[in-house]
Amino acid sequence: MAVQECRERGTAGTVACGRAARELGLKPREFELAVQLGHVRTVSVPGGRPRVAREEIERLRSGAGFPDSLRNRLWAVGTAEAAQLMGVSPARFARLARAGCFAPVRFYVNRYRAVVWHYLAADLVEFADANPGLLTGRTAPGLRMELEERDDQRARSWRARRLDQLTARAADPWERAAAFAAVLDPGQLADAVPDPYERAYLSALRPDLAGIRSDSAAARDVIEKVTLAVDADEIGRHRERLAGALSAARADRPAPKPHAHLSCAAEEPQPEPESAPEPEAEPEPELRSEQGRDQGPGGEPEEARAEPVPPAGLRGWLRRLRLIA
């Protein structure tokens, strides 16, 4: 109802995402993550970027424990901080992460062209609470071998998480199909969608999965490896979901032909893939460093970022998080 009302009345009753972030006390990256996770709902308006309804801001500001409750749900940590939070060694944490025990929530590419994963602190606390046996003592030999022999699942679990986010927010069946198409390479997509008009339309609606911009070709190659499915079973699963989404989209309306698409472009701008506040100019992720240390996506050293600090004890923080969420 709120989305339809905002579409009908234009920008009345809404604010730009940048202003919404400031009113909610969130940094641009935090706001972007809040939108991806569905904690902040945006609305589409004719001819412009997504906006946030004033009612949505008031809903969040009136929530119990605001703003700490909202920021705690958006608290993302790197490997070292994650291991400390869970009370395990970095090696054990990395083994659990590679095995796909929890999905990363975002990533960036550092100056060495290596992928640096971030995880939601709330996800890690939930996993630790449900699986205490995996955090202490010696891992059973059979389980240890199974964990170590698995292919690295971090990129795959991140893709699955992003697709769930994008398809849940898709307001149009063709947008939903475009999300599934976004994780297939051009060859796979051409095989799955033989119609060139449909492929062109899906490409026009293709969402930006990573939200990372880089002038470095090497960094772009790394990002592409993370965003595209590579395993045959994962590719097959996404192709099945794409086929189902395409059937629904075709039933709704056919893909526009190029001349029709161009004639309507001025009247109906394509929806933008993400709804984050306009970012300030900042250096590329792979160039961010200070005295040889890797930096996080916000341009601050990982260990120096001002994030919520849990009280002593994992269980105490978990109880506090659940009380104010």
Rank of each mutant, 00 (worst) to 15 (best):
A12V: 15
A12I: 14
G13P: 12
T14V: 09
A16I: 12
G18D: 09
A20Q: 00
A21K: 04
R22I: 05
R22K: 14
G25Y: 11
G25C: 11
L26Y: 09
K27Q: 14
K27V: 11
K27E: 13
R29M: 06
F31H: 07
E32T: 15
A34Y: 00
Q36R: 15
Q36G: 12
Q36K: 06
G38M: 12
G38H: 11
G38N: 12
H39L: 13
R41C: 15
P46M: 01
P46N: 09
G48T: 11
G48I: 14
V52F: 04
A53G: 15
R54C: 08
E55P: 02
I57H: 03
R59Y: 00
R59V: 02
L60F: 00
R61P: 01
S62Q: 06
S62Y: 01
F66Y: 06
F66W: 02
L70S: 07
L70G: 08
L70V: 02
R71H: 07
R73K: 08
A76S: 15
V77P: 04
V77D: 01
G78E: 10
T79N: 06
E81R: 05
E81F: 00
Q84G: 12
Q84R: 15
L85K: 08
L85F: 03
V88A: 04
V88M: 10
P90N: 08
A94H: 15
A94C: 12
R95N: 00
A97V: 12
R98Y: 00
G100Y: 08
C101G: 10
C101R: 15
A103E: 12
A103Q: 10
V105L: 10
R106D: 11
